[in-house]
Structure formats: structure tokens, C-alpha cells
Write a protein that binds this DNA or RNA. Sequence first.
DNA 1: CTGAAAGCGCTTACAG
DNA 2: CTGAAAGCGCTTACAG
Lengths: 358, 358
Amino acid sequence: MASKDGSEGGRRPRRQDGALTISDVAAHAGVSTMTVSRVLNGGFNVRGSTRERVETAITALNYAPNPAARSLASATRTRIGLLYSNPSAGYLSEFLLGCLDQVGRSDLGLVIAQCEPGDDSEIAAAERMIADGIDGLLLPPPLCDAAPLIDLLAENDLPAAAVATGRPAASVSAVSIGDRAAARDMTRHLLALGHRRIGFITGNLNQTVSAERLAGHGEALAEAGVGLPPELEVPGLFSYRSGLQAAETLLALPDPPTAIFASNDDMGAAAIAVAHRRNLDVPRDLTVCGFDDTPVAAMIWPGLTTIRQPIAAMSRAAVDLLVDEIRARRQGKVAHHVHTTMPYEFVRRASDAPPRRG
Amino acid sequence: MASKDGSEGGRRPRRQDGALTISDVAAHAGVSTMTVSRVLNGGFNVRGSTRERVETAITALNYAPNPAARSLASATRTRIGLLYSNPSAGYLSEFLLGCLDQVGRSDLGLVIAQCEPGDDSEIAAAERMIADGIDGLLLPPPLCDAAPLIDLLAENDLPAAAVATGRPAASVSAVSIGDRAAARDMTRHLLALGHRRIGFITGNLNQTVSAERLAGHGEALAEAGVGLPPELEVPGLFSYRSGLQAAETLLALPDPPTAIFASNDDMGAAAIAVAHRRNLDVPRDLTVCGFDDTPVAAMIWPGLTTIRQPIAAMSRAAVDLLVDEIRARRQGKVAHHVHTTMPYEFVRRASDAPPRRG
DNA sequence: CTGAAAGCGCTTACAG
DNA sequence: CTGAAAGCGCTTACAG
């Protein structure tokens, strides 16, 4: 067949940035672009050996698909929602940093809504997003544990990814650290320093991580044969203010603890403030430690010994999980809810020391 | 002419979401899509009357171009960088919220880098971004005032948008509130309550807003014929810790102030903490106010009277400015550096009252 | 100042 | 299981 129009040659190509395209991969693997596309999108209906050849070509060439072309061709820009509700500012900013990163590299639309905790505004906000045609929802704490919300999503068959929940619901994907193990590590550290009377400030019991962290603390004590007298376990709500009050309670005890393990950094910072108000030196007179490693932990003095959660990496991972699930559904596959655990890190700063003798 | 291929009909259209395309606008305006595209991209080489017709069609139809198609066709995804350096977490999270929103709706790539303040890492980070081929840079405080950094960008002819600078450099676009006027309003409020000895905690003088806020304070005092004794002006660094020290200094004065105006909320919160430590009731014994309206202002007790900066709106606006400038340059137009001022808001909470008598 | 054609890099719908 | 063709919505390069 002759070429369809008479004119041959002439125009110069538009693009000169050396970016690889799907055709390069196809050529390298000796298949059609169609097949490469299939592999890219889950590899269904592709023979195993073919898929391997394509995957080899992809990694050899270090190919990454052009997100703009993808969303244009599929005529569906994936849009995910982020619902948040008064987390600490330090947590939120790191969470957003992770989202921004992942959203930017995947050409996703991200719709954000804040909602007040407690009342039904989280339900209302979620319903608005569903009506708006969102493809999936991201749930940072404390919403990761909001049962009515999660039920609503399940009823509407909307994929969701919960971040930092202590006990993921079966109907959602989730990214967490091992909160129980992390708390156990922290308490083991305090025990190793020689502390035996350790005050514990719980988190808000609406959030499942609170019970997990308390359980981890209890396990470490049990291992060491140390008891946890009820007066040493005081309730907090994750807020600075609640930490102030909890620390007051602990330090006003007739036989006060030599160490305080606060279930997050804000409350740890509050415990340090209370200690100072009482003219106690931290860590000489009192050891204090926190959890999360939000910015405040490094900003106060003395720096707070804590557990680092890789928050940005967790939100990135959650976005990935969500997108994978959305894609899978579009192809009619069964939805997998993946529960991922990411590594935490023990961060020792300057707020802990052996208990004072005499 | 006959249709080019014999087959007529057959496939059904791929898209069914009623989204408008450039062809709809072209039909409505009675021009080619090419002309609509020209209007969309600055309207050069389009007759005035034609442009108006197209613009009318765009607004009538409420048309918005498909960002994915745009970046695919132009073969250039606009990528902007965000360089940040230890702002308060509350500030950063609101700033990111704005970016996320704007980036999401424009199909922009966003590259984020943190750098330590002071040393040359901001220069190094910027150079890395330039080498990476970034199209423009976003500069939240304190980097909005980093002269060496801004010089580097000017030398490399890289568009930048500074957010919340008190005195924008000529070579960058900028989005600010009127810091001077806002501080003037706050001090007028304190004067109206009856305060005459007002302590002022400055911000970090590396940031130009610090001098502006101080100047606004001074202007209001001058208007009222009230002097500013040197001992009532104490230096802060915008950090909680620096606020603690500054407030101590003020309250240890033989004739202490009846009100403290802190140049940001973190330092205002610190002043309240110091007052409490000294058994002073806020606001009965001491009025305290802040600036910015970051989350901490509403979280502490009493709630902090402050000036609200629309941080998210400011970062959104900065992204827009940057993108406009990048597009203009691509079309060979001269780059405009726009300096925008956005409205602030006086937020009265519970930390201010008339001075105590006797 | 304006438009017809080609093309951006992918995916969908169809046909084997 | 695999591929040839058409199309996503826009912009570039060219021609008037």
C-alpha cells in the first residue's frame, strides 16, 4: 500500500527530551505497545514468559509511563479524597508532604476536606465526596478508626486506605507501624535504664493505636516482672492540654514515677513543661519519652526520646495502595485490601536517663 | 469529499462524562479550536473582537481545559519546586494544603526539598533543583527573604514566587498580606482597650516581616501619642523558646507591661505559658496577642487574639503566579513579577482585656 | 490574524 | 493470549 497522503517527510519531530515511551519498551521486548500496556496495568491476559520479557525491558530501560498520556487516554483522571480532622499540625504537614509527592508523580486529583471530630461532619463530608464521584479515600488518624465512616465507605463500595490505625478494619487497606512492638521497645529501654515506676499517659481511646501502645507497654513490664499499678496509668487525649493534666496527676502522686511514657510527643512535651513548673530537671529528676517523632520532639528542650513513625512514607504508601486498588477494580478484578506494616525507629534524644538515686 | 475510509459508524465513543472540550467552545464561538487555544494561552495574534467572542463562549460554557491533554500536547509538564526550611509545623501544613489544591487542578509536578536554615544548604538545594530542570520555585518563609538564594535564582533566570515576605525582591513575584497595617490594627486594638505599656516581641530580624510588624506597632503608638520605651521592645526569633525568654524579660521588668504583642503565635503561646508560671491570669492580669493564626492559637487556653493570614490561599496564589510567569516565558513574552497583597483578618479570641486597675 | 493537519504517549474497543 | 486501529483533548508547526 502506498502512503495515504502524497507528502512524505517535512515536519520535524516535536519532542526532543530523551524521555522513553511505551514504543521503546515494546521494541526492546519485541511485542506490541498493547502488550506493554497490559503488563503495566496488572499483566492480565499476558503469557507469563511474555510478561517477563516486558518487565525486563521496563527495568532495563528504566521506563516510567507518562501520567498525562495515561489519564488522557483512559479518559478518567483518578481522583482521591483526603479527609482529615484535627491531627497535630506536625503530623498533618508530614502526611501532606508524602501525599504531595505521590500525587505529583501519578497525575492524581486530590480533593481535601477537613471535618470536625465527633459530630457527624465526617459522614457528611464523606457523602459529599462520594456524590462528587471520588475514586477512593485516604484516612489519616483519627479518622482511620472511625467505624461509622468506614461502614459508610464499605456500603458504598468505595476503596479507602487507613493510615496509622492500630487495628485495621477488614474492608479497607491500611498502612501502620507495629505500635505494640514499638511501645514495647520503648518500655524495655526505660526498664533497662533502671526505671521501675513508669507513668503511662494513654492516647485517646477512640483511636486503636492507644490500646496497642498501652498493650506494648504492659507486655514489656510483664516480661520484666514489673507491675503496672493503676495509679500509674492515666488517660490522655493526644493533646498538649490533656498531657498537662495527666502529668500533673502523675507527679502529684505520693510516690511519683521516675519516668513518664507519653503516648505521643505533644503529651510528652506537656509532661516536660509540668516537670519544669515543678522545678524538676529532665532527665535528671524525671525521664520523659514520647511517640511519633513529630517536629515538636526535636524543638523542645531537652529533645524528646521517642519512636519515629515514617509518616510521609506511610502516606505515600497509602496513596499507592489506594491507586492500585482503584485500578484493579476498573479492570474488574476483585479488590484486595492490603494491610502493610512499615518499620519504625527508636530515636534517643536527651530526655531520658537512669532514675535518680536517693 | 467522501469520508476517507469506507467504514462508517461502528465504534461507540469512549467518553461519556459530559465534560466540555475545546471543540465545544470553538463551535460556540464560531472559530477553530486553534483560535480557542490561542486565547487560552494568552491571546496573542488574535483579533480583539475574536478574542472577546471566544472568552464569552468560555465563560458561558464554564469551560476548563483538560490539564492532562495540555501537558501531553505541549510535551512539557510544568514542574515547580518547593524549598522549605523549618517554618512552624502549623504554617507548613496550611501552606501545603494550598499547594496540593492548586497543583492538583493544574497537572503540575511538584518537587519538594527541605533545607536547614543558615548554612548554604538552601543554595545547594536550589542548585540541585535548577540542574534538575525545574521551571520555577516557591519560597515560603523564611526563604522568601533569603537574599543570596534570590540572587542565585535571578542569575539563573528562574521564576520564583515568594510568600509572606515583608519586602519583596524586585526579581521575584510575591504574595503577602500588609504586615505593617495588620500590626497597626492590632496595636490600635490594644490601645483602645486602654493599654499604654505594651511589650513587643519582635520576630527574627532575618525575615522582613519582622521589621514591618514592628513598624506597624510603632505607627499605631505614634498616632496615639504613646511612646515605645526601649525596654519594652525585646527580640524574638519566632520560636516558642525565644518567646519564653522574651516574655520572661518583659515580665521581670520593674514596671512590667500590661499587654504583650508577640510577632507570631508560637511566641504568644510562650508568653501565656510564662504568665501562668508567674501566676498571672491571662487576660485579667496580662493581655497577650499573637500573629498568623496558626492552629496553636485556637488550641491553647485562653485562645489567642491574633491576625489571620490566609496561608493556604496565599500559597495557591503563589502557585498561580508562578505558572503564569512560566507560561508567559515559554511564549517569549517578557516576564512580569507580580506583587500581590491579600487581605488579613483580625481574630479576637480570649487572651485580651482592658488592663487591670490598681 | 486564522485554520487544517499531525502528533503528544498512552488506553479502549475490537478482531483475531 | 496478542495486535492494528482509533481516539483521549489539547498544542505545535506549518501554510496561508
